[in-house]
């Protein structure tokens, strides 16, 4: 009981920051803005969500970058070389969650893994899990949807990554990797010895550079969220994304795929849609689609693989995300 109360406090007040919502509401009332009106409500949602996500972002990026400093891709590559079969896929998916990696590094990473002799399926398990599930998304999901949803999200994300990699392996897609990638020899470079201070400085630098990079996306995301929250009628959301539309998950996934944003930008939209009666699986498949697949990342990956393999990758991710959506819709009554 004690533990339960403590956890509720952590979830609502520390991760969910309910106090901040009350505070922004009170401050707005003091300036004479009625938060019960649509405009007042929008302003409150915008301020509360922007501040909340910014605080979470800075704290999370710092923490995650510190952990990531132990797992540069060069090291993940060496670790992965020690595993075989399905285990290599599992470890690849897990390392994908902690290896720092931006889309502009995806080609060198692909070449590095391949030239180290890692199976293609393992590389893809890594490439799927890396954007889809990371440590940041886990904590952020706890703050918005609660711990059960967050843990299940991460587990199903890892399952898609392992399954996707295994399918690509079984279909023997090796000929559909661009030829130049196989021509690069295996090179191991020295890993620098980092002191604790180096790791802290790295984490701090990552925090500032990530903040500068994603802050515009957060503003756009929260802005859209504020509009949904206060201006879009609940009936519309329910009709299109709620229980009345069996294709809500498919629709949300297809809209999310070409969009490019990270989890911090997509979460306020998901949060607002959920509060308006959209089903859990619909908003989660939207978030997964936005973070996992995007036009820029596909264009980047096209440089390393031929169209057939790229298409297979997109199809596997899409089918996986849609399956996750229906799965969450089905279990929603039991976990929220």
């Amino acid at each position: 009981m004690q533990v339960h109360l403590m956890w509720t406090f952590v979830q609502n007040q520390i991760l969910g920051m309910k106090w901040l919502n009350a505070l922004t509401g009170n401050l707005l009332s003091m300036t004479g803005l009625d938060t019960e009106t649509r405009i007042g409500g929008s302003v409150q949602f915008f301020l509360y969500d922007t501040i909340k996500i910014t605080i979470l972002l800075c704290f999370l990026i710092f923490l995650i970058s510190y952990i990531q400093s132990y797992f540069p891709p060069e090291r993940s590559k060496k670790i992965l070389g020690n595993f075989h079969g399905i285990w290599a896929n599992c470890i690849g998916a897990l390392l994908g969650t902690v290896t720092p990696f931006c889309s502009c590094s995806s080609i060198p990473l692909f070449i590095g893994f391949t030239s180290a002799g890692l199976p293609l399926g393992v590389t893809f398990s890594f490439l799927i899990s890396s954007p889809m599930v990371d440590l940041g998304s886990l904590l952020l999901l706890v703050s918005i949807f609660g711990v059960k949803v967050a843990v299940i999200y991460v587990v199903v994300g890892l399952i898609i990554a392992v399954a996707g990699g295994t399918i690509i392996e079984q279909l023997h897609m090796e000929p559909y990797v661009e030829d130049f990638i196989y021509k690069v020899g295996k090179v191991d470079i020295e890993l620098p010895d980092l002191t604790q201070k180096d790791r802290f400085v790295y984490a701090k630098d990552q925090m500032f550079s990530t903040f500068r990079k994603v802050f515009p996306y957060i503003l756009v995301g929260v802005g859209i969220g504020a509009v949904i929250h206060n201006w879009i009628p609940e009936e519309w959301v329910e009709a299109v994304l709620g229980g009345n539309n069996p294709f809500g998950v498919v629709l949300a996934t297809l809209i999310g795929i070409p969009m490019y944003a990270d989890i911090f930008g997509s979460i306020p939209i998901a949060e607002a849609l959920l509060s308006k009666g959209a089903l859990l699986g619909v908003v989660l498949s939207f978030m997964m689609a936005v973070t996992t697949l995007s036009l820029p990342s596909m264009i980047m990956l096209r440089k390393a693989v031929k169209p057939k393999l790229l298409a297979l990758f997109v199809v596997i991710c899409t089918v996986g995300i849609i399956a996750v959506g229906y799965f969450f819709n089905a279990i929603q009554p039991f976990i929220i």
Binding site: E74, F101, P108, I189, Y202, D205
Partner: peptide, 28 residues
């Protein structure tokens, strides 16, 4: 050129190479 970059063993860009030796990678 990505194949040249990979030939240095670098997987996280940007990297700094001095006299053909990688002295730093993955950070600005």
């Amino acid at each position: 050129d990505f194949s040249q970059i990979a030939a240095y063993g670098v997987m996280s860009t940007p990297a700094l190479v001095v006299d053909e030796k990688v002295v730093s990678y993955g950070k600005v």
